[in-house]
Design a protein around this nucleic acid. Structure first.
Lengths: 206, 206
DNA sequence: CTTGACGGCTAATTGCAATTAGCCTATAAT
DNA sequence: ATTATAGGCTAATTGCAATTAGCCGTCAAG
């Protein structure tokens, strides 16, 4: 990785731990292994580093929207998978999704940074909501919608059903971000949630 | 309100909007209508102002744990209310709870501040999790547990049920914090969620 | 009535953090 | 071979933000 990119990487780590304002260009330089003024050979300012991180993230997610939902990127195929899934397989899927969001180094640091900076300006707020609310709901909704259409699910309530599936995952995830020692507990709860969800919305109903 | 308290109040507002590090003692002083050095007649340092806000919050919530769950503070009585509630009444209750969290000036500002500062140190992280995860789940769980015991609810799964009730509310709430213009939409979704929850866990089951 | 503490002000002071200036080396293209 | 550029360094510079010093008026208690 070249210096220019290593700066972004170390800056993202620091921003995600302490927030933009509490990180000094000196800290970033030190992590990269250069002196602070050398940073300016690569970026015009501290702000420019932050902006570059945001831009890079936009690129990543634009290129492979796949990263947003893990399972795949063909909702029809995914829905088919879902439909024929056993409860145990569904739990594994949920765990994988959860683990990806929670442990993927880039995804995690970026989310934490955005959590800290979300009120700084409207653009960041909207980015947060898009990435961690609208996009997941939209994708999962498509998935469940397919299942509803082909299986016997209550078609009228897909949006709500999706929210009820995803919101607990979201809540546990943000909890683990700040209280990582409770991850094991979170996984147990997650398992209970998926089993229960499965039962509640089982194809036998409605 | 005396100056000492007005400082806390204005500081909380600013901290919740821009985060501790981006607020200058000068900003606080200006809002209060005094000069920055005068702040030091009341608080030893900027950090002391922050700490005083946290302390004050602890006092408030210690005094009236009631503020945490709105409905009341006698879970037995509350459970009874819940049990005999019509769906419409239940929606009103959910809306009230949501509105309280979302609009109560103190509650809202404090939550936003904590959101921004949650990764600053472990104590703040734990405070956040306690206030917005554990306490609500614990209270609502007690409530639903009562309902389960007296009504025909699936007793074994109260924790998961509680999570499934509260997580969507939590998620919509944090969304409205950063994207207030979507409040109306959030309320519609909330209504759908409660109706659906009511149906899924209706006393006819289990 | 006078005094001390409370709370405000102006004018430093201090310290740090971002950035700029200007120099140096290596290396890749001409 | 030469040279321009990329990228590193040290040593300022700049500016701002927190805090301190020290002064002053008010007003309640003795």
């Amino acid at each position: 990785m070249d210096t220019k990119h290593r700066i972004l990487d170390e800056a993202l780590t620091l921003f995600s731990e302490k927030g933009y304002a509490n990180v000094y260009v000196n800290d970033i330089a030190q992590k990269v292994g250069i002196k602070a003024p050398s940073l300016y050979k690569h970026y015009k300012s501290k702000k420019a580093i932050f902006d570059a991180i945001i831009d890079e993230m936009n690129d990543r997610f634009a290129k492979q929207a796949k990263d947003l939902h893990i399972v795949g990127n063909d909702p029809k195929a995914d829905a088919h998978i879902y439909e024929t899934l056993s409860e145990e397989e569904m739990i594994k899927l949920g765990f994988d999704l959860f683990s990806y969001y929670l442990h993927d180094d880039y995804v995690k640091r970026f989310r934490k940074m955005l959590t800290i900076e979300q009120f700084h300006n409207k653009e960041l707020a909207d980015t947060y909501t898009k990435l961690y609310v609208d996009d997941p709901l939209s994708y999962q909704g498509m998935l469940l919608g397919q299942v509803a259409a082909s299986g016997g699910l209550n078609t009228e309530s897909v949006d709500v059903m999706t929210l009820q599936f995803f919101a607990p995952i979201y809540m546990l995830l943000t909890m683990c971000d700040r209280t990582p020692e409770r991850e094991e507990e979170a996984l147990k709860i997650l398992e209970g949630h998926i089993r229960q969800f499965n039962r509640l919305y089982s194809r036998k109903r409605g």
